[in-house]
């Protein structure tokens, strides 16, 4: 007989038990045979395949149905999908990790930024920094700067989401939605951007302007379609 059934109390929170899950904290009723090797192996296999199914379902919806994941979440259908913050963090880490090997295709490439620096202040600052680092070879120096830049921007982008959500709150003020609802929309939008950029990585490496052009187009279309689904046809 399970320990908690004897005591009629949840092992985690001490709440009186009704059924196999604690209605207060969700803890499953404990059976000692759960630690039997055969049972435990089955449980591990189930957990792994269950998470896989969740990931697949979430990513499929994120890519093929703009805004649907947010709509589902806002309707309270959360269980079948990965939570927005977890999805964002996982995709963001994967993104910055994969792009750290291909710094030329990364979000911020100092060599590309140099071409668009009309103030003329970037080159002297870079030269001074290179001197400071003991005259590191150009290739190594740019790679190191790109890595530092992308590490910084990964944190700053996370902060930017809170500002993006505020912009949504202002633009869709008539919709009378909570700030966090906009935040969830933005987390899904950014998650899509990371996923798309990872899929576009070969294109970025082959032809960067074409890759950026396509990324811009997909962002605008995706933004439009997901806003239409989540916020309705009118602002």
């Amino acid at each position: 007989m399970p320990v908690e059934q004897k005591n009629k109390r949840c092992a985690s929170c001490g709440e009186a038990l009704v059924g196999i899950y604690c209605y207060d904290c969700g803890e499953k009723i404990h059976h000692r045979h759960e630690f039997a090797l055969a049972h435990y192996s089955r449980e591990i296999i189930y957990q792994i395949t269950h998470i896989d199914a969740k990931i697949f379902k979430t990513l499929q919806l994120l890519v093929t149905r703009p805004g649907r994941l947010t709509a589902e979440y806002l309707l309270g259908r959360k269980k079948p999908y990965i939570r927005p913050i977890r999805l964002y963090l996982a995709l963001s880490m994967l993104y910055f990790f994969s792009f750290s090997f291909f710094d030329k295709a990364a979000l911020l490439d100092i060599r590309l930024l140099l071409k668009f620096d009309f103030t003329g202040r970037l080159l002297p600052a870079l030269q001074a920094k290179q001197q400071l680092l003991g005259g590191l070879a150009d290739e190594l120096f740019y790679r190191s700067i790109n890595q530092q830049l992308n590490n910084k921007i990964s944190l700053l982008l996370f902060l930017a989401i809170f500002i993006y959500a505020f912009v949504f709150k202002v633009i869709f003020v008539a919709k009378k939605r909570y700030y966090v609802e906009h935040l969830i929309f933005c987390l899904h939008l950014m998650s899509f951007s990371f996923l798309r950029d990872m899929l576009f990585l070969p294109l970025y490496l082959l032809h960067k302007p074409a890759g950026f052009g396509l990324a811009l187009a997909t962002t605008v279309v995706y933004l439009f379609l997901s806003m239409k689904r989540v916020y309705g046809a009118r602002v």
Partner: peptide, 30 residues
């Protein structure tokens, strides 16, 4: 909705630009 998309995209780009400048400043000048 199309106008809102353009406005939001412009706002996103501007915010990203500011953060990119901030990152460059922190890496090179700070």
């Amino acid at each position: 909705m199309a106008l809102a998309t353009v406005a939001l995209y412009a706002a996103f780009s501007a915010i990203f630009g500011i953060f990119a400048l901030l990152a460059i400043y922190q890496v090179l000048l700070a």
